[in-house]
Simulated assay, not measured.
Amino acid sequence: MGRVYALALLITVSARVAAEPLTALGPCGPVDRPYDPVELPAARLRDLKGTAVGRLGVVALRQGRVRPIPFQVDQRNGRKLALPEGPEPTRAERAGMLGPDDLVVFMACDAGERMASADVEQSGGGKAPSLWREIRLEDPLDHTAGFVYLVVADAPPESPARYVAYDGRGDLVSTTRYRVGMVNALPNYFALFSDGAVGPNLLDGLRLRADATLLA
């Protein structure tokens, strides 16, 4: 199967609606970057164009065990993210189908060791995937390499873990460590979790003070 090499590590905020309890990230595999998501442009997966998003899965080999890892597909119209549940809903041109503008997003920390083809073929625990791609990550600082595998199957392996939740009604992003709320795409709420409880809004005390002089 084909391979995708040398992905850059991009630091962005990516959100996904999650009904399940959120999971803390870690420990990391070969690529020790606990805060960096990887954005893989679907345009680099040309033969997967038009694949149903529900048929995709991502797996990694860690300590001799193949396991699914959390991922998401950010569907976009051009460079604009489609958010059907947002306060101003926008939808992808072909919702639920992988398009050239879309991004496959996962955490660099979840990457594992390189797998043999036979292990990838058995990663679903049942019928072999109809198609798969090896994705190689390389840390630009220490050049450590990690691998994940994107598989296409009727019943792809799926991780129950969710790192981020997005509530479109309140424009609120939540993780196990913090919450960020926004108004008109500008943050107005930021709170940390401590011992399972949500702390105070750390932005509440910030004020901008300015002196103005009017010239006639």
Rank of each mutant, 00 (worst) to 15 (best):
G2F: 13
Y5F: 13
L7K: 03
L9C: 04
I11P: 01
T12G: 05
E20M: 11
E20T: 14
P21G: 08
L22F: 09
P27R: 14
C28T: 13
G29W: 11
G29N: 13
P30G: 05
D32F: 08
D36I: 05
A43L: 10
R44N: 02
R44H: 02
R46V: 10
V53C: 04
G54W: 00
G54T: 00
G54Y: 01
R55T: 08
V58D: 01
L61I: 04
Q63P: 06
G64L: 04
G64T: 03
R65Q: 12
D74L: 05
Q75G: 01
Q75T: 03
R76E: 08
L81D: 12
L81Q: 11
A82I: 07
P89S: 13
A92S: 07
E93L: 15
R94D: 11
M97D: 08
V104H: 00
V104K: 00
V104R: 01
V105S: 00
V105T: 01
M107C: 07
A111M: 06
A116L: 14
S117T: 11
G125A: 04
K127E: 13
S130T: 10
W132N: 04
R133K: 06
L141K: 14
D142W: 09
H143A: 06
G146N: 03
F147A: 02
V148L: 03
Y149Q: 09
Y149C: 07
V151S: 04
V152P: 06
V152F: 08
A155F: 11
V164F: 10
A165D: 12
A165R: 01
Y166D: 00
R169D: 11
V173G: 08
V173Y: 14
T176E: 08
R179G: 01
R179W: 03
V180L: 15
L186Q: 15
Y189S: 15
F193P: 12
G196A: 09
A197H: 07
V198C: 06
G199C: 07
R209V: 14
T213V: 10
L214C: 11
L215M: 09
A216R: 15
